Simulated scan of single mutants.
Amino acid sequence: MPKIEIYTQPGCPYCVRALRLFDQKGMKFTEIRALHGTAERMEARERSGGRTTVPQIFIGGRHIGGCDDLMALERDGKLDPLLAAA
């Protein structure tokens, strides 16, 4: 099973949507709370190449992007192979 890391912020509907998708797929993930101004938020920004929004999603150490990017992978049938290959 691939290591899935998701940087989130409370009250973020996009974060909830991304987490829900992984729950529905039965995938285990690590949720990292990344509030504004925290070290975790800076880490997310550095790892994502400068993106400042949440969620920021990593699968097997690879940056996937945010919720829209995740949903596009799912819609295009590319998420399950990515999860299986990681």
Rank of each mutant, 00 (worst) to 15 (best):
M1I: 13
M1Q: 15
P2L: 09
K3S: 05
I4N: 03
I4D: 08
I4W: 14
E5V: 03
I6N: 07
Y7I: 01
T8N: 13
T8V: 11
T8G: 09
T8C: 12
Q9V: 10
Q9Y: 11
P10S: 10
P10L: 00
P10H: 00
G11N: 13
G11S: 10
G11C: 12
C12Y: 08
C12F: 11
C12W: 05
P13D: 01
Y14G: 08
Y14F: 11
C15T: 08
C15L: 07
C15H: 14
V16P: 03
R17N: 08
R17D: 05
R17T: 06
A18M: 02
L19V: 13
L19M: 08
R20W: 02
L21M: 07
L21K: 07
L21Y: 01
L21D: 05
F22K: 05
D23I: 00
Q24D: 12
Q24T: 05
K25H: 02
K25A: 14
G26S: 07
G26F: 00
M27S: 06
M27C: 10
F29I: 06
F29G: 07
F29C: 00
T30F: 12
T30H: 05
T30M: 08
T30G: 14
T30R: 10
E31M: 08
E31D: 09
E31L: 07
E31Y: 09
R33N: 12
R33I: 13
R33P: 15
R33M: 15
A34F: 09
L35F: 05
H36D: 12
G37A: 12
G37S: 04
G37W: 07
T38D: 12
T38G: 15
T38I: 07
A39M: 06
E40K: 01
E40T: 12
E40S: 02
R41Y: 03
M42W: 15
M42P: 02
M42R: 12
E43M: 03
E43N: 02
E43G: 05
E43A: 11
E46N: 10
E46Y: 08
E46G: 12
R47A: 00
R47T: 01
R47C: 00
S48N: 13
S48F: 02
G50W: 01
R51I: 10
R51K: 09
R51W: 11
R51Y: 10
R51H: 01
R51P: 03
T52G: 07
T53Q: 02
P55H: 09
P55T: 14
P55G: 13
Q56Y: 04
Q56N: 00
Q56L: 15
F58S: 08
F58T: 15
F58I: 11
F58E: 04
I59N: 07
I59W: 08
I59Q: 11
I59A: 04
G61C: 08
R62F: 14
H63N: 03
H63C: 13
G66M: 08
G66S: 10
C67T: 02
C67I: 01
D68Q: 00
D68G: 01
L70N: 00
M71V: 01
A72T: 06
A72W: 01
A72H: 09
L73Y: 07
R75Y: 09
R75G: 12
G77E: 03
G77D: 14
K78E: 06
L79Q: 01
L79H: 10
D80P: 13
P81M: 10
L82I: 13
L82M: 13
L83D: 11
A84W: 00
A84K: 13
A86G: 15
